[in-house]
Amino acid sequence: MSLLIVGATGTLGRQIARQAIDEGYSVRCLVRSFNRASFLRKWGAELVRGDLCDPSTLPPALDGITHVIDAATVRITDSLSIKQVDWDGKVALIQAAQHAGVERFVFCSILNNDQYPHVPLMDIKRCTERFLAESGLDYTVLQLAGFMQGLIGQYAIPILDNQPVWITGKAAPIAYANTQDIAKFAVKALSIPETANQTYPVVGTRAWSAEDIIQLCERLSGRNARITRAPLGLLRTVRRAARFFQWGWNVADRLDFAEVLASGNPLTAEMDDVYPVFDINPNEMTTLEAYLQEYHSRIMKKLKEIEYEQEKTKARKKRQRSPFKSSD
């Protein structure tokens, strides 16, 4: 079985690549930059240069490939729009996979995308799921909620650094999952016949509100958070202003997603029927408490080591000071 991973340098994609390599798959990764993806080659993956927005690069990347996992999505720092990457690029990839005779296509989507037709990213994910289902390919769709990895920069680090933590009104609770756990589902979907032409939610063990996460980080770090609430009306104004400029279109599309979070509707799903299909023990899923506990344990240990070294340096400099000499 030969596997092409699209989006392999991303937060989720790299974990899928690691999991697939560890399980003995022949892994090829579609990348735009060999330098940025050099760690994948060190792990044992083959790198092929390509771009979802350049359809001519896709057939060579799919040559000899039997399975595809697509974990790519536009980054907020990209100059390209959500439509260019998450729609035009994905349509080109699916069509190229058809021509290449790919046996299974695993697509990483977003949970509840059918409930927000006015939000570009959600609507495009919904349309991509439909296009994939109608393509004739054997497919598996994994609908995700959020990644635990993103919470470090959003909550843990600002609280540790005494920086503001930004939240939007009464943000919807989200069942964040560890990308390492999601990767297990993605790779298992390749070889389980029952997952063909099916859609599954893959989410964390429970939904967490922003307030819940902040309280957890405060307890683990022993520090108080500086919370700043961004009114939804302000985000809407910024979004409208951004649409006046081409460089702001992608930012505006991302701000539209704030409507999902501010809706108050939890991003979560029941997983009891999913675990048996993938032969995954729910008790092995990472809890958010355990994930953040491990992070804070490591970072607090590092901070203590730094403080200890600083104290040693101060003491050494104090001993090295020349004493005042008294005159005879």
Rank of each mutant, 00 (worst) to 15 (best):
Glu211Cys: 06
Lys42Arg: 13
Gly146Asp: 12
Lys42Val: 11
Arg298Gly: 00
Arg75Asp: 10
Thr168Ala: 06
Ala230Ser: 12
Asn113Gln: 11
Lys301Asp: 07
His296Ile: 03
Asp273Thr: 13
Ile124Phe: 06
Ser109Lys: 08
Leu235Pro: 07
Thr228Lys: 15
Ala171Glu: 15
Gly50Ile: 11
Lys314Pro: 02
Val251Ala: 11
Ile82Pro: 02
Arg319Tyr: 09
Lys170Glu: 09
Ile227Val: 15
Glu211Pro: 07
Met148Asp: 02
His296Gln: 09
Pro276Met: 05
Val102Leu: 10
Ala225His: 10
Ala242Tyr: 08
Lys325Cys: 09
Lys301Gly: 05
Gly169Val: 02
Ser322Ile: 11
Met271Ala: 04
Arg18Met: 05
Lys90Tyr: 14
Ile159Gly: 00
Trp87Phe: 14
Leu235Asn: 09
Pro201Leu: 01
Gly24Glu: 01
Glu259Ser: 10
Gln15Trp: 06
Ala171Lys: 08
Gly10Gln: 06
Arg32Trp: 06
Val31Asn: 05
Pro276Ile: 07
Ile174Trp: 11
Gln143Val: 09
Ser81Arg: 13
Tyr200Met: 07
Thr9Ala: 01
Lys301Ala: 10
Leu12Ala: 05
Phe185Pro: 10
Asp54Tyr: 08
Ile69Arg: 14
Pro60Leu: 03
Ile227Cys: 03
Asp181Asn: 06
Met300Glu: 07
Ser326His: 07
Tyr176Arg: 09
Gln154Ala: 13
Ala172Cys: 06
Asp279Leu: 11
Leu52Glu: 06
Asn112Ala: 13
Ser191Ala: 15
Phe39Val: 12
Gly44Val: 07
Arg226Gln: 12
Ile65Pro: 08
Val119Lys: 03
Phe131Gln: 10
Val187Lys: 08
Phe278Glu: 12
Ser81Tyr: 08
Ala72Gly: 03
Leu12Cys: 02
Val274Pro: 01
Val119Gln: 01
Ile94Cys: 01
Trp208Lys: 01
Pro173Tyr: 01
Arg28Asp: 00
Gly264Ser: 03
Glu129Val: 09
Pro201Gly: 00
Trp166Lys: 12
Arg243Ala: 07
Leu40Arg: 12
Ile94Tyr: 03
Arg223Asp: 01
Ser26Trp: 12
Ile110Lys: 12
Ile94Gln: 03
Gln198Lys: 15
Asp272Asn: 12
Val202Phe: 01
Ala61Phe: 15
Arg49Asp: 00
Asn178Ala: 03
Thr73Met: 14
Pro282Cys: 00
Asp279Glu: 15
Arg236Met: 05
Lys188Glu: 04
